[in-house]
């Protein structure tokens, strides 16, 4: 095929593109991901039964805030990474800002706490459940984020996949937070953070396979 013929074909009757479509799709993916994570978590692990306590509600909100920060930083970074050359615009470390900030706060909480409480604060009672549930629940939101990325044109597939994992893990953590009864800052930082890091690693491994174009 002659390149001139291809050019002629591509440019004949070219359709205008819809500029706002990308952000609409991304917003749709975020809403869908958060809603499905919460639904799956409620259906499988169930809602914690002690929510009438104000102190507990505070921790639930804190977990939501942490997960929400992870998702919003991730989505912002992803909107760059989804476009050709987007990986050059920001350092990947930037996407980990919420986790680093939370680890710092958690470290302060540990320093302030009595030594005998340290183990309970970090390990909680259900750390393994947390570490497993968050990546498992993240599968559906991850598929939604991949759907979006496949309509775009990421040129760094490892990084795009990794950040897709972070976003999915963050959404999943929102759902899991409704069930989780381990209420301490260090627990959230270590195990929620750890579970999201696992999602990021899985995403980075899968990225080149799923996102190639």
């Amino acid at each position: 095929m002659k390149t001139d013929d291809l050019i002629k074909m591509l440019s004949t009757n070219v359709e205008p593109t819809d500029r706002s479509k990308i952000s609409r799709e991304l917003a749709g993916v975020v809403l869908f991901g958060a809603a499905t994570s919460i639904t799956i978590a409620l259906l499988t692990t169930g809602l914690r039964s002690d929510l009438e306590n104000a102190h507990i509600l505070y921790f639930l909100l804190l977990k939501f805030a942490f997960a929400g920060m992870v998702v919003s930083f991730g989505v912002f970074y992803l909107s760059r990474l989804s476009r050709p050359g987007g990986e050059k615009m920001r350092s990947p470390l930037w996407a980990t800002a919420p986790l680093v900030a939370f680890l710092a706060i958690a470290a302060l909480a540990l320093i302030a706490a009595p030594v005998m409480h340290l183990r309970t604060m970090v390990m909680g009672t259900e750390w393994l459940e947390c570490l497993i549930s968050i990546p498992v629940i993240a599968v559906v939101p991850f598929a939604a984020v991949v759907w979006f990325l496949r309509r775009m044109a990421p040129t760094d597939l490892v990084r795009a996949g990794g950040v897709a994992g972070v976003v999915a893990g963050g959404m999943s953590a929102m759902g899991y937070a409704l069930h989780c009864t381990d209420d301490s800052l260090p627990f959230i930082a270590v195990w929620y953070g750890g579970a999201i890091v696992l999602c990021a690693l899985a995403g980075a491994v899968l990225g080149p396979k799923l996102l190639r174009w």
């Binding site: 390149t3 291809l6 819809d18 990308i22 476009r83 050709p84 050359g85 050059k88 044109a153």
Partner: peptide, 23 residues
Amino acid sequence: LLAIHTRRHTFDPDKPFTPWMHA
């Protein structure tokens, strides 16, 4: 050329064009 055509919506008009094409 085909890739640019089918993914032309990923160009952000607020950003420069050549880096997008190079990428």
